[in-house]
Amino acid sequence: MSSADTATPATPDARVERRAKRIAKHINAFAAQHGGSAEGVVEYVGRTATRIVLVGADGAWGDQVAPTYAVGQRAAELAGLKLHDSFEGELGLKVRTGPYEWKRMAGIQI
């Protein structure tokens, strides 16, 4: 019997863990670039994706997209991300917007 015959396919849990570790690396890189820490919220985008909204210690914001809510939650956990229930309130107040965001928001109004 060859080793190919005894190999088992990756379990769903193993795939979740691999994907989450990859996303956690991006979260940690974002945090390192923006004051050394970040906070965030995990939100459903739809049936096929989840968005992790990040806010750095310096007020910069960004995001990561995960294929499922479970992957997003696990990535946040692996990165040590402080999670909030929603983007409103405390987390939203930490965001610092610049001229680019204000110009884009004004453009939507026109």
Rank of each mutant, 00 (worst) to 15 (best):
M1D: 09
S2G: 00
S2K: 12
S3G: 09
A4W: 09
A4L: 13
A4F: 10
A7G: 01
T8H: 07
P9A: 10
A10M: 12
A10T: 12
A10K: 14
T11S: 11
A14L: 11
R15L: 13
R15F: 06
R15W: 08
V16R: 08
V16K: 07
E17W: 06
R18P: 03
R18T: 15
R19S: 14
R19K: 14
K21A: 13
K21W: 05
K21Y: 04
K21N: 03
R22G: 11
I23S: 00
I23M: 04
I23A: 01
A24F: 05
A24G: 06
A24N: 03
K25R: 14
K25H: 13
H26E: 12
H26P: 05
I27Q: 02
I27D: 03
I27R: 02
N28T: 15
N28Q: 15
A29N: 14
A29L: 14
F30R: 00
F30E: 04
A31T: 07
A32Q: 11
H34S: 08
H34P: 04
H34C: 06
G35T: 09
G36I: 05
G36P: 03
G36L: 08
S37F: 07
V41T: 04
V42F: 00
V42Y: 02
V42N: 03
E43T: 15
V45I: 15
V45S: 09
V45E: 08
G46C: 08
R47Q: 12
R47K: 14
T48E: 06
R51G: 02
V53Y: 10
V53I: 14
L54E: 01
L54K: 00
L54I: 02
L54Y: 05
V55L: 01
G56A: 00
G56R: 12
D58Q: 03
D58R: 08
A60V: 06
G62Y: 00
G62F: 03
D63N: 14
V65I: 11
V65C: 08
A66W: 02
A66P: 08
P67I: 11
T68L: 02
Y69G: 13
Y69V: 15
Y69R: 15
V71E: 06
G72N: 01
Q73C: 06
Q73M: 11
Q73N: 10
R74W: 03
R74Y: 10
R74I: 05
E77A: 13
L78R: 09
L78W: 00
A79I: 01
A79Q: 02
G80F: 08
G80R: 07
L81S: 03
L81Q: 05
K82I: 11
K82C: 07
L83S: 01
L83I: 08
H84P: 02
H84S: 08
H84V: 08
S86G: 00
S86T: 10
S86W: 07
F87P: 07
E88D: 10
G89F: 04
E90G: 01
L91P: 02
G92M: 04
V95P: 01
V95Y: 03
G98F: 07
G98W: 09
P99L: 12
Y100E: 11
Y100I: 15
E101G: 11
W102E: 12
W102R: 15
K103C: 12
K103E: 10
K103D: 10
R104S: 12
R104E: 08
R104I: 14
A106P: 00
G107E: 11
I108G: 09
